[in-house]
Amino acid sequence: MGRRLITYRPSWSTRIGRGFVVMILAIAQSALASQSVPLEQHSGMPRAVIRVRESATVQGKEILLKDLAEITARSRPLVEALETLPVGQAPPPGLTRIFDPALIVIKLRQFRIDPADIRIESPRQVIVAGAHRIIESSRLFEVAKAAVLRGRDGDLEQITVRPDTLPTDLVVPPGEVDLRARPRPASACPEPCRRVDMGSIPVVVEAWVDGRLYRTVSLVVRLSLMREVVVANYPLPRHTVVKTTDVRLERRDIGSLTHEPLQDLTLAVGRRTTRMLAMGDIVISNAVELPPLIRKGDLVTVIVEAPGLRLTAKGIAQEGGAAGQVVRVKNTASGREILGKVESDQTIRVGP
């Protein structure tokens, strides 16, 4: 890329004034020469030279002249003033912008620095990049993983964590980076509910740079809790009494379940299903129940007991019930409806 010389063109009155100064300098030079006194070596040289580079990387929100150029000047105060001269807005970290060196003269005037006798050598344009560093998505995941596993020391050997969704690599400005992650609160689920916060968990990761929050990103991680649980071998329609051959134990991910799964075959065998179970379904606690010993309309024996008293009567069950459940039963003799506890397939006990 060719370089160009940016010159400051003074007004006609300024040029006349300069001509007068040149004439005075010529007279002074002649007088000094006759007295053998040399002129200063920098006489006739520019006050400062600004050599602008073709590209630059800047840090912060502003572009300073020292970011773009090499600066030499006759005096140190002038060098410092030129170096700290803001000439434009810096691009965000990781991005670039094109800077027009012609703006330097405008900025000199804006900050009351006389561009006269300042030589500017520059390319046609300057590519300015924002200084940055990259935080890879894998590191963001590791920070999120540590956050969701915090406080789960007892289950660490049985929990696996993998990313569901990952953000792209994070671009941040240079500096001391501190990543802070926090899981979002889990949504409520109806009781009885396994509040173990498994399955897909949204996590917020904050990137702090030099003690200030710079960027917040979101990702989702999936927690799998592996346990040996009861699984259906075949499709089981609703109200099927489970047999030994109907179920098996299998190691499965129970992280997404909202109710406790059965982990003992004896808790399923002999009970009946409360809903349809497909082949391979995990049998959870509310998917089976004790089968009713008494059905609605069954003729039963009602036993009434009190201290020093025991009576029996015939009754008709007004609703079905399993062992230990309290059901309504009507006395066939009196027509009175009472409550009793199912004791067997033909007996309902009333009283303590």
Score class of each variant (00 low, 15 high):
A146E: 15
P92H: 06
A102Y: 08
G88Y: 03
A131H: 09
G151E: 01
D114R: 06
R53Y: 00
T165K: 07
S137C: 11
R109N: 01
E83Y: 08
L149Q: 09
T160D: 13
L149C: 01
L65F: 01
L166H: 02
T96H: 14
G175L: 06
L78R: 03
I118G: 00
A144L: 04
G88R: 03
I134C: 08
V105K: 13
E136Y: 04
F141E: 12
A102G: 11
P173M: 00
D100F: 07
R74V: 07
A73W: 11
G88D: 02
L179D: 08
V79G: 00
L103Q: 14
E142G: 04
E176S: 10
E136D: 13
G130S: 08
E191D: 08
D164E: 15
I159F: 06
P92E: 09
A116L: 10
S122N: 01
E157A: 12
R74L: 15
A56P: 10
G175C: 09
I71D: 02
L85R: 04
R119H: 10
T72P: 10
D117M: 14
A181C: 06
V128I: 11
D117S: 15
D169Q: 04
G154W: 05
V161T: 09
L95H: 08
K107R: 15
A69S: 14
A147P: 02
V58Q: 00
P174N: 07
P185G: 01
R119C: 09
T84P: 02
E142K: 13
I106A: 15
I113V: 15
R150N: 13
K107L: 07
T84D: 13
I127F: 06
K66E: 12
R139F: 12
E121I: 11
D155K: 09
I134F: 07
V148F: 06
I63S: 06
L170N: 04
G60L: 07
D169L: 02
Q110S: 02
I98A: 10
G154M: 10
I98V: 12
L95V: 07
H132M: 12
G94M: 08
L85F: 06
T72W: 04
D164Y: 09
A144R: 00
E83P: 06
L78M: 09
V161G: 11
C189N: 12
V126D: 01
E54H: 12
A102E: 13
P123T: 05
A102S: 15
A116H: 05
G154L: 04
E157F: 06
I71R: 02
R109G: 00
S138C: 01
I120R: 08
I50C: 07
A69G: 05
I120E: 05
G88S: 11
L140V: 14
I120K: 00
R162K: 10
T165M: 05
G151Q: 08
E80V: 14
P92F: 10
L85W: 03
C189F: 01
E121W: 07
L166S: 11
E136R: 15
L78A: 05
P93G: 06
